[in-house]
């Protein structure tokens, strides 16, 4: 496992150096901490690396006993100035993408914490500029099933989970001036879609009623990151707010209604 993580970090470093174009980037694996009907939480995290900056937003609500619905939105963008050591024209590569999804699931007491299983789906889009406006604009949709385990007490939160995803790339609009190597990857996406793979993720946080300061991590532990230009991991820090702790008998938030 440690080996894997080290390997991944090495790949990540390499990728950070070589490109900014990802055809898929995993959003954080959300683990709602609900244990009671009526609880609602919103959260926001920032994520990024040497060349990228992203935001990950989530809202969850338990409208019924043992049931949760959640909405997630993830947006990322990156920019990279090609250093071009050969002295030719140097250009700027840009990339941006989003993923928007909804999920529902059930939770139940498990060991010393809470177990839950969620299923959901959503849509996304990446728009990669390979420099001088050579753009690959690709749409994706994603479905997932996600078992999680969470533990919370008055000041501490720990959540982790496995997310089985199926990513499908239904449509793309691609400038064929993009370098042949990069086109080859895009054509592989087209031919081999949909992709099914696991993602591992979790978060750890310190809770100061009603706010939690947290760190999030998600990993894509398969070859997909290398073979198909998928982002292999995401790390970020953020804040979440337990709306139900703001005051008793407050109205439920409307975040899940749209």
């Amino acid at each position: 496992m440690i080996r894997n993580v080290l390997g991944l970090s090495a790949t990540l470093l390499l990728m950070a150096n070589s490109c900014v174009q990802y055809h898929y980037s995993p959003n954080f694996l959300q683990t709602p901490y609900h244990e009671q009907k009526g609880e609602a939480v919103v959260s926001a995290s920032v994520t990024g690396g040497p060349t990228s900056l992203g935001g990950d937003f989530s809202a969850s609500w338990s409208p019924v006993k043992n049931g949760t619905v959640m909405l997630n939105y993830y947006h990322t963008r990156s920019q990279f100035q090609d250093p071009n050591i050969f002295g030719g024209t140097s250009y700027i590569e840009r990339s941006r993408g989003y993923l928007m999804e909804a999920a529902a699931g059930g939770y139940f007491p498990l060991f010393f914490g809470t177990g839950a299983v969620y299923a959901g789906g959503g849509i996304g889009r990446t728009r990669n500029d390979y420099g001088i406006e050579r753009i690959a604009d690709i749409r994706l949709n994603r479905f997932f099933v996600q078992p999680t385990f969470t533990f919370r007490n008055n000041w501490f939160r720990l959540g982790m989970g496995l997310r089985m995803v199926m990513v499908n790339f239904p449509k793309g609009n691609i400038d064929y001036r993009i370098e042949p190597d990069d086109i080859a990857v895009i054509q592989k996406l087209e031919q081999e879609s949909p992709f099914v793979f696991p993602e591992l993720g979790g978060n750890i946080g310190v809770h100061f009623k009603p706010v939690t300061v947290m760190a999030q991590l998600v990993l894509l532990p398969t070859q997909h990151s290398v073979d198909y230009g998928f982002d292999a991991s995401n790390f970020g820090i953020g804040l979440s707010l337990d709306l139900h702790e703001l005051g008793r008998n407050k109205k439920k938030p409307s975040t899940t209604e749209d």
Binding site: V69, A104, G121, N168, K171, G172, N173, I174, Q187
Partner: peptide
């Protein structure tokens, strides 16, 4: 919302990709 979500999942077909190159 749960039903809405389920119907979205069922409606989005896991169809073949169709990319346009120009």
């Amino acid at each position: 919302p749960v039903f809405a979500l389920l119907s979205v999942i069922l409606l989005v077909p896991a169809c073949k990709s169709d990319f346009t190159y120009y």
